[in-house]
């Protein structure tokens, strides 16, 4: 207990007064995972807890930077509607910052997005347009393009899949923060591909570091998967910001392994996280075990994208309930 009370540095940083919710983005905690990584005791495994962002996910970083930069150079103003396609978390982030910055927001998402995320986005006053659940997130991308083409003056379309400010947020934020926290010790960085913003931007920053850092992208092993938020690139529209040269290796994770790790993170590390975070940590631990077996040691950093409660579905009896 005394060790916890004594660690004031982060406390001071996180308790500073803020003039707006946008300023609360970033500087997320980096947590050592000891229990789920116990089979690789010679390797440090860290998770960057992105659920500590004000919108509850890693997507706050990209959304806030895309919006602030567009407001700065006039692409976005209060007479335009921000519109984009999203599987949920980016939508929550746009909605939150839209309310904070006085920007109207409309989102296109597949209708099977979790109820929690629809409700959160709507709470900020956002309009939601549903696309066909059978077409997945690519269906939402096609639909948003059609809507914007019809009336381009009405909308600001950040296009998170092609906007350089998405990886830029991770270059200036996530990557720099990780180096600040672990410095020269880091040997590996692991992140899943959704838009690929996190892996592209963070890797670019880490590769500028004077010691080599191996950057590993995580993808679902199959096109039909349950790792919500992650993209199976071989069967998807490849994001404009993605380049396979931006990282060193791809690891493919089975849905069941990601789900099981998410459960273990809750019961063993007290981290109740979403399935994409489970997949990230599963991949990070595979790498840690590999390093441990080779006697190389190392320091593996990965991303916890959001909390598990964002995926709660109403139970059978609740679904009949009229609010």
């Amino acid at each position: 207990m005394s060790a916890w009370l004594g660690r004031r540095g982060l406390g001071l940083l996180r308790s500073r007064p803020l003039s707006g919710v946008v300023e609360a983005v970033g500087q997320t905690p980096l947590l050592r995972l000891e229990k789920v990584a116990r089979e690789a005791p010679s390797v440090e495994v860290y998770a960057k807890l992105e659920f500590a962002n004000p919108g509850g996910s890693v997507k706050d970083r990209a959304a806030s930077r895309m919006m602030l930069r567009a407001l700065e150079d006039g692409r976005l103003s209060s007479d335009k509607i921000l519109i984009d396609s999203t599987s949920g978390n980016t939508g929550v982030a746009y909605s939150l910052f839209g309310a904070a910055l006085g920007v109207r927001v409309a989102l296109v998402m597949p209708s099977n997005v979790s109820q929690a995320r629809k409700d959160i986005a709507r709470a900020f006053g956002t309009e939601i347009i549903f696309s066909d659940p059978m077409e997945g997130s690519d269906g939402a991308i096609h639909l948003v393009r059609k809507i914007v083409e019809k009336d381009p003056e009405k909308y600001f379309y950040p296009d998170q899949y092609s906007n350089p400010d998405n990886p830029g947020a991770h270059y200036h934020g996530t990557g720099a923060e990780i180096l600040d926290a672990v410095g020269d010790r880091i040997t590996h960085f692991v992140a899943g591909i959704g838009t690929s913003g996190t892996i592209m931007g963070t890797s670019r920053r880490l590769r500028e570091h004077d010691r080599p850092v191996r950057c590993v992208a995580v993808e679902p092993s199959d096109s039909l998967h349950g790792l919500e938020g992650l993209k199976h690139l071989p069967s998807s529209l490849v994001p404009g910001i993605h380049s396979a040269a931006g990282y060193d290796e791809t690891m493919r994770v089975e849905t069941e392994d990601g789900w099981e790790m998410a459960d273990r993170l809750a019961s063993e590390e007290a981290l109740h996280v979403g399935h994409s975070s489970g997949a990230n940590v599963f991949a990070a631990i595979q790498i840690a075990k590999r390093l441990h077996e080779r006697g190389e040691g190392g320091c593996v950093v990965t991303i916890v994208c959001d909390r598990g409660d964002r995926y709660f579905a109403p139970m059978k009896w609740e679904r009949r309930y009229v609010w």
């Binding site: 679902p220 790792l227 992650l230 998807s236």
Partner: peptide, 8 residues
């Protein structure tokens, strides 16, 4: 048959 949601 409804899949999970991928990406972004």
């Amino acid at each position: 048959i409804v899949p999970a949601i991928a990406g972004g």
